[in-house]
């Protein structure tokens, strides 16, 4: 039980670690910022994949939705990046609440495939259908339209880094709270045995729906931060061929855990960073990586670490027992 007492420190430790890394490797700041943003995205997918057991091949569409709603707001309607983030969050809630009942009642593979189709429609919409607003593949630029935010001017990459760290910390704390709350247990229980859950009196549809909304909101939040960080968006973010990436990252970190997505994001982006020096298109790598992780390493980085910790604690207990 001692671990429980100190466990609350981990979110601070991990964000602190990122900030420390930024000073140790100043040239890698962009990379570290992306780790934070990508973590949020992976956390969203982890709710679907790890907690509820849904595979979605359409997560990029929610990322792209967040990015485009922030971008469209900043390019046409307002100037404050913070409001843009709020807009993206609202869009995420709205999409989750409205699309949820349609998508979430589809099971297993249907959910996966329909999400993929949804993602294709999303890509088509920003690339071609709404080209007048989104500027299609040229991308939508709005960096110069943003005004300074109070306290911390997040238009500066240096400041944005701290803002991203702050958001990551807040989401970490909420995510940890979710994991330890009844809700987290209910998510996992619904994945484990939905029948039992229903015959215990839980409306599992609502549970899955809520999970879907949370996943969507995290994705749009991440998307809006990406948009503000870059100062522009293009359809690349929502490309459906990238749908597997977030699943790999979730698997790599350890699905169904609080800190798994964070380590998944670090590991995945780290590998990408290193490998992209040699190859530009790296579907091959994503594929190989997924198969290895799925068959040989399915507890992920964080999951494996926890297993080792548990095992060592058990041996300690055993040693204590034997005089």
């Amino acid at each position: 039980m001692a671990r429980r007492t100190y466990e609350w420190i981990l979110p601070f430790l991990f964000t602190g670690g990122l900030i420390l890394a930024r000073y140790l490797f100043p040239s890698k700041m962009t990379f570290i910022t992306e780790v934070a943003l990508y973590s949020l995205y992976v956390m969203g997918n982890n709710i679907l994949f790890g907690y509820l057991g849904y595979v979605s091949f359409g997560q990029p569409v929610y990322l792209s939705m967040g990015a485009y709603s922030a971008a469209i707001y900043l390019a046409y309607l307002g100037r404050s990046p913070l409001t843009a983030i709020l807009v993206a969050l609202l869009v995420g809630i709205l999409v989750g609440v409205l699309m949820g009942p349609v998508l979430i009642r589809l099971r297993g593979s249907y959910f996966t495939l329909v999400n993929a189709a949804f993602c294709a429609i999303g890509l088509f919409t920003v690339e071609r259908l709404l080209i007048g607003i989104t500027r299609g593949n040229d991308g939508l630029w709005f960096r110069t339209r943003m005004v300074a935010t109070p306290l911390l001017d997040i238009r500066q990459p240096k400041n944005f880094f701290f803002f991203a760290m702050f958001v990551l910390l807040v989401v970490f704390l909420l995510y940890r709270r979710m994991d330890r709350s009844v809700l987290g247990a209910a998510f996992k229980a619904t994945q484990g045995n939905e029948r039992r859950m229903q015959f215990m009196g839980y409306d599992t549809f609502k549970i899955r729906w809520l999970g879907f909304v949370l996943a969507t909101v995290l994705s749009t939040l991440s998307g809006s931060l990406y948009a503000i960080n870059f100062g522009f968006v293009n359809p690349n973010l929502g490309e459906n061929s990238r749908a597997a990436e977030v699943i790999v990252a979730t698997l790599l970190g350890g699905s169904g855990t609080v800190y798994g997505p964070f380590f998944g994001a670090i590991t995945f982006l780290g590998i990408k960073e290193i490998v992209s020096q040699w190859i530009t298109r790296w579907e091959l790598l994503v594929g190989v990586l997924t198969i290895i992780v799925l068959f040989k390493f399915n507890r992920g980085v964080w999951g494996t670490f926890m297993d080792l910790l548990k095992r060592s604690r058990k041996t300690v207990v055993l040693q204590k027992k034997t005089p």
Partner: peptide
Amino acid sequence: VFDNLSVYENVALSLYRRQTGNHSILLSF
């Protein structure tokens, strides 16, 4: 039963539903 939860969580989750009545999902956070 829920294979992916602990024995305690299995039983407690069942009890929770009864303690809170109908509107338990949003509050359960």
